[in-house]
Design a protein around this nucleic acid. Structure first.
Length: 178
DNA sequence: CCCTGATTCGC
DNA sequence: GCGAATCAGG
């Protein structure tokens, strides 16, 4: 399996979104999490600040936490998404620090809220739109088969909860799925 | 044990 | 360049 430009781009995007190496490997397919981590390093992508260990050899001092909240905004309450969207629509220029804060919050939200199970709207296939989660629920051969259908902000295929499931290895989904 | 990322080194 | 093996740590 080679690292085509397309696969590298997807790797970069998913890594930036905060998915773990194993989740990325599962989504790309055909590669192990070690392969993903190895590629991340060869691409010189920023590492993960928190988790992870080190080798037996003494490692030089690690770089400062990449996902650390920018100091300028440390005491500022998090703005909600609606506020930011409105501000942007009004033509306001986002400060560099605001971009950093937003990126930080994106990752934190994904990590902290992913465990919240969305309320299924029980939509059928023809009711799905660009803004509904398309995670299937139930048996396609039975009458009550439906899709999650909860509202999603962008045109992603799944809500954040089901996206997390989708990115996990199949063997891991059963544990979290309900 | 489960998981995480980091590193090494034979290929 | 690639990634399995191995490591330290949550």
């Amino acid at each position: 399996m080679q690292w085509s430009d397309d696969r590298v781009e997807r790797l970069k995007r998913l890594w930036a979104e905060g998915l773990s190496a194993s989740q990325i490997a599962a989504q790309l397919g055909g590669v192990s999490r070690n392969a993903v981590i190895g590629k991340v390093h060869r691409l010189n992508l920023p590492g993960r600040a928190k988790a992870g260990g080190s080798s037996s050899a003494a490692r030089p001092a690690k770089r400062p936490a990449q996902t650390q909240r920018p100091t300028t905004f440390q005491n500022r309450p998090a703005t909600n998404t609606t506020t930011r969207t409105v501000a942007r629509a009004a033509g306001a220029t986002m400060l560099k620090e605001e971009v950093e804060v937003e990126a930080y919050e994106e990752v934190e939200v994904r990590r902290s809220l992913n465990v919240v199970v969305p309320i299924s709207r029980r939509l059928v296939l023809t009711e799905l739109t660009e803004r509904t989660c398309k995670w299937p629920i139930g048996d396609p051969m039975k009458d009550d088969f439906h899709f999650c259908g909860c509202e999603i902000s962008d045109s992603a295929p799944y809500c954040t909860y089901h996206a997390k499931l989708a990115y996990q290895p199949v063997s891991e989904r059963r544990k979290a799925a309900r």
